[in-house]
Design a protein around this nucleic acid. Structure first.
Lengths: 141, 141
DNA sequence: TATTGTTATACTCTATAACTATA
DNA sequence: TATAGTTATAGAGTATAACAATA
């Protein structure tokens, strides 16, 4: 990173963007040895949490367009990490394979390490305020 | 936005990403009537702040790859908002035109409105901690 | 008639590799 | 020989439009 500072650093919105970019780049690097993307883990974790959830349900929980689930699920299936199980002629439950579960367990350790490193960088007096502030910015819009 | 909550919402890293995405989408919508992108304003503001700065200097201050400056500057020039002025045979200063300056002034009002709306959404007791926490996450890496 | 899953497509931000020309 | 500017390309996360099939 550059040591440059600029007036934009005083803006919460700009700082929010920079911090998120830095975090995502960091996480992407940590996950790449596992052959996984951030979106893969996000979906897998939610699939594991919500047994039998459909692609559409997952997309709503993550607040992303459901069309974006298609390539993610395709990757996960081709990697043998997840499969689709018909609920009826219309809906399909997404289910992790056993390989998917063990991969998720490993990946989740990476996530927890990242989360720990993240909060460790925040000065202690600011730490308890960070999550509530962020949640206020994206929840219940 | 969906009203769904999930366990990921408890993770600062995930919340950081969601909050930044929401903010960027919001800002993009607010800027589109002006025919501008977020990256356009960011560059224009810095160019205006650092008179005579070169493309490479701007890219370092924003911590983005300098190759990404090329399409931004091309757009700004084609829109008559900025121009290049040779410093020597190698470097070029980026300069806002008068149209660029008035456009920036309008766009900056949008930015300040967004920043104001952003902090207004954060509960008051968390507000003073937000910017310092974010800065700690991306500065002096 | 609203929802599911899907295809095709496109946009924004960001990055890497490799080149030329100049300081 | 390090730096500036550039081209071409790629990747990751998003989005919209449009469709067939089903609940």
């Amino acid at each position: 990173m550059s040591d440059d500072r600029n007036m934009l650093d005083m803006l919460p919105g700009y700082a929010l963007r920079r911090a998120a970019n830095a975090m995502m780049a960091d996480l992407g690097e940590r996950l790449s040895p596992l052959g996984l993307r951030v979106s893969d883990i996000t979906v897998m974790k939610l699939v594991d949490e919500r047994k039998g959830a459909t692609s559409s349900q997952i997309s709503r929980a993550l607040d992303i367009n459901r069309t974006n689930m298609v390539p993610v699920l395709k990757r996960l299936e081709e990697a043998g990490l997840a499969r689709r199980e018909a609920i009826n002629g219309k809906s399909q439950a997404i289910v992790l394979t056993s390989k998917g579960q063990s991969t998720l367990a490993k990946a989740w350790q990476v996530i927890e390490q990242l989360e720990g490193d993240l909060i460790a960088r925040i000065p202690a007096q600011h730490r308890p305020h960070f999550l509530p502030a962020l949640q206020a910015l994206y929840q219940s819009d």
